[in-house]
Design a protein around this nucleic acid. Structure first.
Lengths: 204, 204
DNA sequence: TTTTATTGATTGAACGTTCAATTAATAAAA
DNA sequence: TTTTATTAATTGAACGTTCAATCAATAAAA
């Protein structure tokens, strides 16, 4: 028998190498060779483990989404249930270290573009978008009227994605990401403050 | 001499065809044949007018940016100088009919992704990002303290781009664009209202 | 005729996929 | 222990396809 338990290791190696290649060369210039060389493996191995280049690309996106989900779950577990804290958690997990790395940022953007014309990727992307939105909406709805919560959630989701996009395209992504995180949190704070002011006025 | 004035016509035909192809097939599957066929011309003509496929791609992006700039200038000319009105103009021009079409949306996203790895496109993209930001900041600064204006401009710019992105990726781009425009305007309104409240408090 | 515009067949490079061959780790047999 | 059989893991050359770019040939205007 050959080495056993190597399968998952190899798969992860290839996924990492794929993201490195996409970040460095772009989706456009990422080839089976550019990936396998980075992983220190042969070109054939990609088809062996993922059925082809396309399969590896999808696996890489799934991996990014998993990271994002895990990030959120960890942070959610470590706080009480204040809407304010939960919203901060959501923002933080979207800007967390892993996600913030230039590697991930560039890879995301490539995926977004490709998702528009490949149903497999598009579905994954939409699930993720819907999750961000509904997480936000749930917390806002505990403090606001339904309509207000919907609006605030949509605005926040757009702001998060917008800062991501602009940061990835900027000359200094790191700095832009940090500023983006701060400004998203500030927006949420002020939305909540205004909602509370509104509520106390209605009650009196 | 040959037909005169055909040059610009052909160039525009090819730019339109390129955007159609990118919107339909994605940047990935757009070839000089898929473009030239849509334009009803031969494949060789692209190199003749644009020096190659890459040249046409850049010209198409430049065209999109020009449209955006023209859109803004027209709207700016038709209003007085209230910061509120100017900000609405900026938002409207970013969501205007031309820009809103699924064609433009898909093309934009493809450009964004590609811009990250091609200096020529990246420069164009950054000029555009900087213009949106500084237009916004200028108007906010007439009502707010400098720091506040910077923050509001950054938030608004991110929200605009974010709604663009999420709309382009959504199942119903049209509806999402419209909602996005409304919510961007609402955000600006509330930012201005809060700034004025702050100002009157400070004065008294 | 001269100049410009346009075509479309051709070329050569690049790419993803396939697969026969090799390697190396384990299990079973001697 | 040593030998043999078995099999997953891995390689990389070969193949067929796709594509951008080229260019000789043609058409049409001046």
């Amino acid at each position: 028998m050959p080495k056993i338990g190597v399968k998952d290791t190899r798969k992860q190696q290839l996924i990492d190498a794929a993201m490195e290649s996409i970040a460095e060369l772009g989706m456009q210039n990422t080839t089976i060779v550019s990936i396998s060389k980075r992983a220190g493996l042969s070109s054939g191995i990609i088809s062996h483990y993922f059925g082809g280049k396309q399969g590896l690309i999808e696996a890489a996106l799934r991996h990014l989404l998993d990271q994002l989900g895990k990030e959120l779950r960890v942070r959610m577990a470590n706080n009480d249930g204040t809407p304010e804290q939960r919203l901060n958690c959501i923002i933080e997990s979207n800007f967390s270290e892993f996600q913030r790395s230039a590697l991930a940022a560039k890879t995301w953007l490539s995926f977004w573009a490709r998702a528009m014309h490949e149903p497999g990727l598009k579905r994954l992307q939409q699930i993720n978008n819907a999750r961000l939105y509904s997480n936000l909406r749930y917390s806002f709805a505990q403090v606001m009227a339904p309509d207000e919560a919907t609006a605030a959630a949509r605005q926040t989701a757009a702001m998060i994605d917008g800062f991501w996009l602009r940061s990835a395209l900027s000359l200094d992504p790191q700095e832009n990401f940090e500023a983006g995180e701060r400004l998203c949190k500030r927006f949420v704070q002020e939305s909540l403050a205004q909602a509370r002011a509104q509520a106390s006025k209605t009650n009196s």
